[in-house]
Design a protein around this nucleic acid. Sequence first.
DNA 1: GACATTGGTGGCGAATTGTTACTAATTCGC
DNA 2: GCGAATTAGTAACAATTCGCCACCAATGTC
Lengths: 223, 223
Amino acid sequence: MKPAVRRTTLAVDVVVLSPRSDVLAVLLIRSPAGARERWSLPWDAPQTGEGLEDAAARITSALLGAAPAFFEQVGALSDGRRHPGDADVSVGIAALSPTGAVSPTEDAEWFPLAALPALAPRHRTIVDRAAAVVRQRVDQSPLAFHLLPPTFTLSDLQGVYELLLGRHLHKASFRRALQASYLVEPTDEWRSEGRGRPAQFFRYAPKKRRGARRGVRFDLFTE
Amino acid sequence: MKPAVRRTTLAVDVVVLSPRSDVLAVLLIRSPAGARERWSLPWDAPQTGEGLEDAAARITSALLGAAPAFFEQVGALSDGRRHPGDADVSVGIAALSPTGAVSPTEDAEWFPLAALPALAPRHRTIVDRAAAVVRQRVDQSPLAFHLLPPTFTLSDLQGVYELLLGRHLHKASFRRALQASYLVEPTDEWRSEGRGRPAQFFRYAPKKRRGARRGVRFDLFTE
DNA sequence: GACATTGGTGGCGAATTGTTACTAATTCGC
DNA sequence: GCGAATTAGTAACAATTCGCCACCAATGTC
C-alpha cells in the first residue's frame, strides 16, 4: 500500500452562533429552488490556497456585512451523510458573532438552536458538533467574550455563560472568579436603560497571568 | 456568489503518540527515495466513503499490527505549507498507542517528540498541533488511559500525566483526586519486578458519576 | 539486619468555592 | 414624595478541596 492523494470534493460549512433574545441562535440561508431542505448552513468550497478559516470569513462576511472575529474548527466529516452540495468531505467551522450584530441579508435568518428547521443530515451533525465544541471550550478559551459587544456588563457576561453551560451560575462566585482572572477592566460607561441599579460596562482586556498550575481534574471528563 | 464544490486533493496525516522510555514518542515512516525529507508522518488519502478516523485506523494498523483504540482530530489545514504528497488539504489525526505496543515494521520508527528529524512543513505543524491538543484534553477526556496497557499501576498512570503535562504531580493529591473520580478499579495482580514495594495493578473502569457541576474557571484559558 | 527504594495513606493548614445575607441605585405605581 | 419592586454589587461565613509533610509498608541490596 503506497500513500497517494486522491481528488475529492470539499466544502467548508459554517455554524454562525449568536445569542439572540436569551437563546443561542444559528444563522441559516435559504436553499436554492429544488433543494431537498428549505434551509442550510452557509457553505462553499475553499478557493485555491485559501485557508479554511479564511474561507469561513469570506462566506459569513457576505451574509453579515462584517466577518465574525472568532472561528473554531469543529472537525472534518467524511461519512456517508448527505451534504447539500454533495461534497465528499466537509470541514465544519463554528463562528461566533456578538449579540446585536448586523441583521442578516434577505436570504439568511437566525434560528434558535433548539428549534431548527430540517437540514441536510451532514449539516445537522455539524451543528450539533459545533454546539458541543463551544460548550466544551467555554472555560478554556475566552470564547464567551466574542459573543458580546466590545463593552458589556457583568450580568451580560454571566448570561452568556449560563446560555452556553445551560445552567444557572451564582452571581457572587462568578464575579469572584472573574475578578481573580484579570480578564476584564471597567470602563467609564454605565448602563442607562431599564429599571434597577445601573450596571458598569466592562471590556475584555486580559492581563498577563502568573502560571495557574493546578492539579489534575478527573471530574471533567465528557465521555 | 453561489456555493459550489471544487475538486481538491486530500490527505489524512496521522500522529501516533506513545510513551517510550519516559518520553512521548511519535511514529514516523521512512520516505520513498527522492523525497525532500527522509521521514514523514504516516498518511494516505481516505478511500471513497471511508470515514477519516477509519482511514487513520487503516493507515496505522498496517504499521503497528493493530490499530490504536483512540483517535482525535487535531484540525484540517489548507494553508500553503508543503505536504509530502502535495495534498491541498490535510486532516491531522492524533492516535494514541499504549506503552509497550508492538514494535513497528521495518519502515517505521519511534522518535521522541522533542527530537524529531526534519519533516515537511505541514507535517511539522500537524505534530505540534497534535501534541497541543493531547496536552490540552488530558483532563477532559480519559485519553491518558489509552496510553497505557489495560492494567497499570497508579505510578504508571501518574507518569503519563506528568509526561503530558510536563510537570511533576504530587502523589497523594493525584491519588486522592483519582479516588474521588471512580475511574479505576483495583485488580488482583501485583507488580513483581523491580525493587521497592510491589504495586497493585488497576484497570480503567469508569463508574457512573453524579453531576460534578463546578463553577466557571477563568484561569484555564490557553490563548 | 541496616539501608535504599518504591508504594501507599493520614492528616493538617491554606486556599478555594458555594451560599446567605446584606447594601446600593434606579424605575414604577400610587 | 415615598414605598415596593428590580437589578447591581459586596461582605462574610461555612464547607470543601488542595498542597504538602510525615509517616507506615513491602520489597531488594549490601
